[in-house]
């Protein structure tokens, strides 16, 4: 049911509506469907977790859907992304299948990784998703290497590296962006600042006038993005991707957004100020999208509701698929460590 994304920007014009400056109908529908798929998928995963149908940890992306969706809307199918521990949204936005994802969260043999990875370790190379990552900051060198590979192979792909405000003070941030800028690599570094690194506020982890200003140090564009506005994310990523694909090097985008839930499924996020929470909840990216497109008459309520219903069905089917799938056979325990040992 993952509706195919329209051609990405930068390669072909997408027939944007002249009146509203909104993307074309197909893209609007894809964006909405993608954001709703992310939210409903995670809500269903949460219910399954609370019902003890899955174990481990879940890091919810709820509230940040516009960021991953707007970024991936600007990519081709063969472009690469690296993701984070909070990676469900990136995987879905890059075209991931909900049934295979849910089965992986359930630890089932039919999951994306045969049950070896779980929530924090889903990849799909066929979709250009090089993988989520359990280590904060761990994906930055990997993404930079993928972009280096693209340059060597001249394959015209751009890599997007997702990371959070918690990774920005890590050495890998500087090592990677420095190298990417040195070699004008086709990469876009996307910092999703959801304000919280576990239970520590971004203001207590990052010195200086803001993460985005670090781009100046490496002579690359640094762009502030309203990470709860999918259209702003899409427009600014499109420009950065175009630049990268043209061989002009990386950009650093900082998407200001908000983690609606706690750090993990276990965290009630009691450390947050309620006024702050309320203010951010009022900027919910999905509600904003609905208001914008209905006001502009770019999408009807009926269409939105139809997509809602389709996504609910898709999610229910994914849970059913996961629940009814078998656990991996024990003889797979040692499979996949090496290609030949």
């Amino acid at each position: 049911m993952a509706a195919r994304k329209p051609k990405a920007a930068g390669k072909k014009a997408r027939g944007a509506s002249k009146k509203s400056k909104l993307p074309g109908k197909e893209m609007l529908e894809w964006m909405y469907r993608t954001m709703v798929r992310i939210r409903r998928f995670e809500e269903a995963a949460d219910r399954a977790f609370q019902a003890a149908r899955m174990r481990g940890a879940l890091h919810f992306y709820i509230g940040e859907e516009a960021s991953g969706t707007g970024v991936c809307a600007a990519l081709t199918d063969s472009d690469y992304i690296t993701s984070t521990h909070r990676g469900h949204g990136h995987c879905i936005a890059k075209g991931g299948r909900l049934d295979l994802m849910m089965a992986e969260l359930f630890g089932k043999a039919t999951g994306y990784c045969g049950g070896k990875g779980g929530s924090m370790h889903i990849a799909d190379l066929d979709l250009g998703n090089l993988g989520a990552n359990g280590i904060v900051g761990g994906g930055l060198p990997i993404a930079t290497g993928a972009a280096l590979g693209s340059k060597l192979r001249d394959d015209d792909n751009v890599t997007v590296c997702f990371f959070g405000d918690g990774a920005a003070p890590n050495g890998t941030f500087h090592e990677s962006i420095n190298f990417g800028a040195l070699h004008d690599l086709p990469i876009v570094y996307v910092c999703e600042n959801n304000q919280w690194g576990m239970g520590t506020h971004v203001s207590d982890t990052n010195a200086g006038p803001g993460i985005v200003t670090r781009a100046d140090s490496y002579g690359i564009p640094g762009v502030m993005v309203d990470g709860n506005d999918v259209f702003d994310v899409f427009a600014k990523t499109t420009a950065a991707v175009k630049r990268a694909r043209a061989g002009k090097g990386p950009s650093l985008l900082v998407c200001e957004t908000y983690r609606h839930r706690g750090h993990t499924v276990h965290d009630q996020a009691a450390y947050r100020d309620q006024a702050d929470v309320d203010e951010w909840m009022a900027r919910d990216p999905i509600e904003r999208f609905r208001k914008t497109v209905t006001t502009a008459k770019a999408m009807s309520k009926k269409k939105l509701e139809a997509i809602d219903a389709e996504v609910l069905q898709e999610v229910e089917a994914a849970v059913e698929f996961a629940a009814s799938s078998p656990f991996p056979q024990l003889d797979t325990l040692l499979q996949g460590v090496y290609t030949d040992v």
Binding site: Y80, T82, L125, L130, G138, L140, P141, I142, A143, T144, G145, A146, A147, L148, G149, S150, K151, L152, R153, D155, N157, T159, G171, T172, E175, S176, N178, F179, L182, H183
Partner: peptide, 28 residues
């Protein structure tokens, strides 16, 4: 210089870039 690259003294980048380059089709 495309196939023989001097890197900065950035060991984490050196280690991780090989992962990204190798899974996408190069042999570092």
């Amino acid at each position: 210089p495309l196939r023989v690259i001097d890197t900065p003294i950035s060991e984490a980048l050196i280690g991780g870039a090989a992962v990204g380059a190798s899974i996408t089709g190069s042999r570092p």
